[in-house]
Design a protein around this nucleic acid. Structure first.
Length: 571
RNA sequence: UGCCGAAUAGUGUAACGGUAGCACCUACGACUCUGACUCGUAUUGUCUAGGUUCGAAUCCUAGUUCGGCAGCCA
C-alpha cells in the first residue's frame, strides 16, 4: 500500500528519490563490520537500518567483514557477529570478506597507478604527517609524487613481494595536497604490514586502507546505498573519488546518519575492550555491557530492541537517548509474555502463630494475570514463610502499604496476615516476625473479600529453593558523561590525541549487586537457562548460564516500574 | 582560525510555506490480591537577531552553540 511504502526517515526519502529518478532501479545495502570486537546496541541500530531499508524496498543486504587490519581482528569476532545479527532476526544475502578480494583490490590499485592517480611514497610516517599540513594550512607535495608509472608499478609490486620492511613505503592516491578536506591530501591506500591475518594467514604483507577498500568493495558488490554513520560524511568526496577513478559506472551512494548514544554507558569498542581486558566486567557478555551478547544473556529480547530502535528513529543530529527508554521497551515486551512466579531476594522469616505446625496448604496461583491460558500452578503455604526484607518497616513513613507492627497485608494468592511481634537478633536487627493469620481470608474463598492495602509476594519454607539473583545498574555513575569521541581509535593513537580524563573513574561501583541468599519457587529453580520470569513485584529475571544444579543464577533483566521507591527516596 | 555536518518540550523524533504532533520521562487522579499493568488529566518546545511572505520550525542573511576531520585504524 501507499502508506506502507512511505519514507519514514530521510534515508528512505533519498532512496525513493533515487528510485524515482532512475539513478537506481533496485536497492542493495551492506553491513560492513570490522571483526575486532563484539557488536553493541549502536551497531544494531546500524545493521537494522541496513536490513530494514533493503527489505522495505524489496532489496537485499550483504554482510561484509572489512578485515583489512589483521592486527586487531579475530575469527571469534567473526563468528559472534554473525550470531548476533541472526539472533536479531535478520538474514544477509551474500557473506563477504574484504580479504577474499585482496587480489582484485591489488589489481585495482595497479589500475590507479597506471592512470597516474596513485604513487608509491618513500616518506616516513612522521614526514608524511609533517607534509600533510594542518586544518588551516595546506600540505606540500611529496618529493616522490611525480615518479613514473613504471617505477610506481615496480615499487608497488615489490612492496607486495615483501622486499621492504614494514612502514618503509606506502601507496597513496594522488589527489590534492592543498585540499581544505584533509582526507583528500593524498590519502594512503596501501601499507606494508607483516601481521598474521585470521583468514589469509601470511599470504600478504600489504593491506589496503579503509578509504580505498571500502568504496571499491561496495562498488564490486553492486551496493546501491552505502549507509554509515556521520563521522564518514567527510570521507564521502574520497569515497566518490575512489569509485569514479576505479571506473565503476554505477557508483553507490553513501548516506550518513547519527550513531546511537545511550546515557550512562559507553559505546565504543575501544572503551568496551578496556572494560573487558582490565577486568572491570566479566567479559564481552557481562550483563552490564551494551553488547548484544550481554543483552541476550541479561534477557533483553530482539523484539524489545527493535521497538526501542524504532522509537529512537533515524536522524543526522547528535543525540543521547535515555537508557530508560530501552528499559521501558524491554518491560513492555516481557510484561505480556513472561510467566509470573515468586522469589524473595532478601528473605525475612515469618512464623505464623496460629497456623498448625505441620499443616501445608496448596494454593492455586495464576501464571499470568492477563493470560488465563497460561494456566495455574500450586504453591505451598506453611507455618514458616519468607517475605522481602524491604517489605517490612518497624517505623515506616506515611503511605507505607506493606507490613509494619500491628499492620496487616495480604500475601499474594494466600491469606491476610497481621504482624504481632518482632524478634531481634543480638545487634538489634529484626530477624523474624511473629504474625497471625486470618484463616477466613484465603484468596478465592468466601471470606476473601476483605481488603487490605498491601499485597506482598512470599515463599513458604516448603517451597523455598535457594538461588542467586544478580541485580544491575548502569555501568556509569549518574551525572557523568564519558566523551566517546575517539570512538574506534586505537589505544596508542587515542592516548596521543585525547589523554583527557579516564572514564574508569566514572564507573558505577554499584553496577552489580549479588543476592546470594535469594529464595524462589521450584518452577524457577527447574527452568532452562535463558528462561524468563517476572518475579512478582521484583522485576523480570532470566536464568544465567552460570547456573548449576545446586545454585540457579538469575539476572534481573529489568526492574518493574516502582512508584513507591520514588516516594520513599524523596521522603 | 580551514573544511564538513547538526540545532524543535527534560529525552528522542515528526511536521516538506498553512492549527507545532507523537513516544518516553515527570506530576496528579482512577483502578488494582503485583505501589506492576491499564485508563484519565496536566506541565513543558521551534538556538539568536534581522529579512521575504497574507502566513516561516520550514525560505534568505548574519550570528551563536554543539559534533566530526590533520592513522601507514575502521
Amino acid at each position: 500500500m501507499e502508506a506502507e511504502k512511505r519514507a519514514s526517515n530521510f534515508i528512505e526519502e533519498f532512496i525513493e528519490e533515487d528510485l524515482a529518478s532512475g539513478r537506481f532501479d533496485h536497492v542493495k545495502t551492506r553491513f560492513p563490520p570490522e571483526p575486532n570486537g563484539f557488536l553493541h546496541i549502536g551497531h544494531v541500530k546500524a545493521f537494522s537500518i541496513d536490513f530494514e531499508v533493503a527489505n522495505k524496498y524489496g532489496g537485499v543486504c550483504n554482510l561484509r567483514f572489512d578485515d583489512t587490519n589483521p592486527t586487531k581482528e579475530k575469527a571469534v569476532f567473526v563468528e559472534n557477529i554473525q550470531k548476533d545479527i541472526q539472533w536479531m532476526g535478520y538474514q544477509w544475502d551474500k557473506l563477504f570478506f574484504a580479504s577474499d578480494f585482496f587480489d582484485q583490490l591489488y589489481d585495482i590499485a595497479c589500475g590507479l597507478i597506471r592512470k597516474g592517480v596513485a604513487y608509491v611514497d618513500d616518506q616516513s610516517a612522521e614526514d608524511m604527517r609533517k607534509t600533510r599540513g594542518t586544518l588551516t594550512t595546506p600540505g606540500v607535495n611529496s618529493p616522490y609524487r611525480e615518479r613514473s608509472i613504471e617505477e610506481n608499478l615496480d615499487l608497488f609490486q615489490r612492496m607486495k613481494n615483501g622486499e621492504f620492511p614494514d612502514g618503509a613505503r606506502v601507496l597513496r592516491a594522488k589527489i590534492d595536497m592543498a585540499s581544505p578536506n584533509v582526507l583528500m591530501r593524498d590519502p594512503t591506500i596501501y601499507r606494508i604490514l607483516r601481521s598474521h591475518h585470521h583468514r589469509t594467514g601470511d599470504a600478504w604483507c600489504i593491506y589496503p586502507m579503509y578509504d580505498f577498500q571500502h568504496p571499491i568493495q561496495d562498488a564490486i558488490e553492486g551496493v546501491t546505498h552505502s549507509l554509515c554513520s556521520m563521522e564518514y560524511e567527510i570521507h564521502r568526496p574520497l569515497y566518490d573519488w575512489m569509485v569514479q577513478h576505479a571506473g565503476f559506472p554505477m557508483p553507490p551512494r553513501q548516506i550518513e546518519f547519527a550513531r546511537l548514544n545511550l546515557t550512562r554507558t559507553v559505546m565504543s569498542k575501544r572503551l568496551l575492550r578496556r572494560l573487558v581486558e582490565e577486568g572491570h566486567v566479566s567479559g564481552w557478555d557481562d550483563p552490564r555491557m551494551p553488547t548484544l551478547a550481554a543483552m541476550r544473556r541479561r534477557g533483553y529480547t530482539p523484539a524489545a530492541i527493535k521497538d526501542f530502535l524504532s522509537r529512537v528513529g533515524v536522524a543526522k543530529a547528535d543525540s543521547e537517548v535515555d537508557q530508560g527508554l530501552l528499559e521501558f521497551c524491554v518491560r513492555e515486551d516481557l510484561g505480556s509474555a513472561a510467566p509470573r512466579a515468586m522469589a524473595v531476594l532478601d528473605p525475612l522469616k515469618i512464623t505464623l502463630s496460629n497456623w498448625p505446625e505441620d499443616k501445608i496448604d496448596e494454593l492455586p496461583m495464576e501464571n499470568h494475570p492477563d493470560h488465563p491460558a497460561l494456566g495455574e500452578r500450586k504453591v505451598r503455604f506453611s507455618k514458616t514463610l519468607f517475605i522481602e526484607r524491604e517489605d517490612f518497616m518497624e517505623n515506616p513513613p506515611g503511605k507505607f502499604f506493606r507490613l509494619k507492627p500491628d499492620g496487616e497485608v495480604r500475601l499474594k494468592g494466600a491469606y491476610i496476615i497481621k504482624c504481632e511481634q518482632l524478634v531481634k537478633d543480638a545487634s538489634g536487627q529484626v530477624c523474624e516476625l511473629i504474625c497471625s493469620v486470618d484463616l477466613d481470608s484465603r484468596s478465592g474463598s468466601e471470606g476473601s473479600s476483605r481488603k487490605v492495602k498491601g499485597t506482598l509476594h512470599w515463599l513458604s519454607e516448603a517451597d523455598a529453593c535457594p538461588i542467586e539473583a544478580r541485580l544491575y545498574e548502569p555501568i556509569l555513575k549518574d551525572d557523568t558523561g564519558v566523551e566517546d569521541g575517539e570512538a574506534e581509535a586505537s589505544d596508542e593513537f587515542a592516548e596521543e590525541q585525547a589523554p583527557a580524563k579516564d572514564f574508569i573513574d566514572d564507573l558505577n561501583p554499584d553496577s552489580i549487586r549479588l543476592m546470594k541468599r535469594a529464595l524462589a519457587e521450584p518452577i524457577i529453580r527447574d527452568a532452562q537457562v535463558g528462561a524468563t520470569f517476572q518475579f512478582l513485584r521484583m522485576g523480570y529475571f532470566t536464568k544465567d548460564p552460570d547456573s548449576t544444579e545446586e545454585m540457579p543464577v538469575y539476572n534481573r533483566t529489568v526492574a518493574l516500574k516502582d512508584s513507591w521507591a520514588k516516594v520513599a527516596t524523596k521522603a
